[in-house]
Simulated scan of single mutants.
Amino acid sequence: MTEPSGAAPVVPDSRDGAAYVIDPEVAFAVRVAEATGRPLLLRGEPGCGKSSLAAYVAREKGWRYYEHVVTSRTTARDLLWSFDAVRRLADAQVRTLGAALHDVNYVQPGVLWWAFAPELARRRGAPEEDTDFVPAEDPDPRNAQRAPDKAVVLIDEVDKADPDLPNGMLVPLGSNEFEVTETGARVRHRGGGVQHLIMITTNEERELPQAFLRRCVVVWVPEPTEQHLVQVAERHLRYHGAAFGRAERELAEQLAGDLLDARVEAQAGGIRPPSTAEYLDAFQAMRELDIGLGSPEWGRLRGLTLLKVQQPKA
């Protein structure tokens, strides 16, 4: 086996958007969503770059960035705020006699709150005259250097949740306001230059409600092409300070062609076809381990990174 090169490995997808290659049709959909004020629903197979798009747009525009990865337990309220009732109960049991608890301090703003009203999120909904609160910290420290009145929000893998989640998002996304139940604070998108772009991804694991789809701009992130894959490989290497010369380009082109063949093979076999994420994994492994498409180890690497089908032992 060839020894690793010893160079620092290139992270295939840092999810910060710095090395993203955007498709022209997707770029146009972003502009439409921004112009209409509607959420942008990104559809497409896993690994095609849906989740990295929001960070890319935020970075390019210099807007603040927030993300929430949806799970089966996520509710619509989690995107707006959460309330730490357990900590409040514990504090109530040990507080000094006569000392009051300030409910505002147990409120944690969600990603949509930070987008709608960032200053009120920092105050946890406390009125301006109230000074008895602990300021909330912006969940992404990079936002301190970005536009204070503009934000991109990623709601990732919305299809993992119950249909109540997209249905529950309709009112706050439509009205840009909501009320914090525990404190009565009213959160409103205050206008005056404040702008936000909501991006929502789905892997098509669950059908989304029609009412939700009607309120979104919808775009399918296209299947990878050979040219796009080579551009992705070049962008990632250059971003991480690595060279992309003739040898790297030839490897990227050869691997891109093989990945497209592997996609056809996978679809014919009824398994999920490899996409851009798997391409980057294979490309990185081939560079680090000095494996070419003609190497004896390529077949094993191809099964590990592209097709991911383990042959049963005899």
Rank of each mutant, 00 (worst) to 15 (best):
W113Q: 10
A76G: 15
E60I: 12
P39V: 11
V111L: 07
A115H: 11
W63A: 12
E119W: 10
L42R: 13
R88C: 00
T96L: 15
L89E: 12
V69L: 11
G62S: 13
A55W: 02
A54E: 06
G44R: 09
F83Q: 09
T75Q: 14
L53M: 02
P39Q: 09
Y66R: 14
W114Y: 10
L53T: 01
S72P: 00
G44M: 11
G44C: 02
N105F: 01
V69I: 09
S52D: 07
R64N: 15
G98R: 06
Y56G: 11
Y56N: 15
D103F: 06
Y65H: 04
L41C: 08
P118S: 06
R87A: 12
V94L: 08
D78R: 05
F83Y: 15
W63K: 10
V104S: 01
G98D: 04
N105G: 05
E67I: 05
S51Q: 02
A55H: 04
E60P: 10
Y65D: 01
Y56T: 14
V104R: 02
A99T: 02
R88L: 14
V86T: 05
W113Y: 13
L89W: 05
L97M: 05
A58K: 08
A100V: 02
R59D: 15
Q93E: 11
R77C: 06
H102G: 01
L101H: 09
R95H: 09
K61D: 14
L112C: 07
P109E: 07
G110S: 12
L112H: 06
E119C: 04
P118M: 13
V69C: 01
F83W: 10
D78K: 05
A85C: 03
G47F: 08
W113P: 08
K61E: 14
G98F: 07
W81Y: 15
R77S: 05
R43N: 02
R43F: 00
A115V: 13
Q108F: 02
R88D: 00
L97E: 15
L112Y: 04
